[in-house]
């Protein structure tokens, strides 16, 4: 049972405002820099917007791919931790992530969402999102919602 929580976006609610990127980079780097945010917005013309970040995969391809074993996934919450000493910025983890969730960073070479571990109030992006388009959830909760919704439709 996958009980790892991750920050998930509601694509209908996301308006592509990128407040999450600013909030994340300020929280993590004490600077505003969307390119160093661990949650990244995609805007497709004319009006598709979504913010994407690490989904705490059950069987993380990034961890497997790293030639130096610089990435370790926490058993407790699925967060991927980067050992900066081992990481050489080769980018193999970036190549294998299907969500573009692990990205280059100027200081830590790569960075990835860590659910704002240690932050009072939890994830900065969720707290600041003006549209309430982000939530902390699990894949189990997502599939359960889908089942309930399907049954509701059947019953109509």
């Amino acid at each position: 049972m996958n009980k790892y929580k991750f920050v998930s976006v509601d694509i209908d609610k996301c308006v592509g405002c990128r407040v999450c990127e600013y909030a994340c980079s300020m929280e993590k780097n004490k600077a505003f820099n969307p390119t160093r945010s661990r949650i990244r917005v995609v805007r497709l013309y004319p009006h598709t917007n979504a913010a994407l970040n690490c989904r705490m995969c059950q069987d993380s391809p990034c961890v497997t791919a790293c030639p130096r074993k610089a990435l370790k996934q926490s058993e407790e919450n699925g967060v991927i931790h980067v050992d900066i000493g081992l990481c050489d910025g080769c980018g193999w983890c970036i190549k294998v992530c299907e969500f573009g969730a692990i990205t280059l960073d100027t200081e830590s070479k790569v960075s990835i969402c860590d659910l704002c571990e240690g932050r009072e109030g939890g994830s900065a992006c969720i707290e600041w999102c003006p549209e309430k388009a982000l939530e902390l959830t699990t894949n189990d909760a997502i599939s359960q919602k889908a089942r309930i919704s399907a049954v509701e439709k059947m019953a109509e």
């Binding site: 407040v19 600013y22 004319p46 009006h47 917007n49």
Partner: peptide, 18 residues
């Protein structure tokens, strides 16, 4: 079709019409 926002805007008022 959608109302979206500019960079770092909590107001979001871009009315996109088709």
């Amino acid at each position: 079709t959608k109302i979206q926002g500019c960079s770092a805007c909590p107001c979001r008022c871009e009315h996109i019409a088709k």
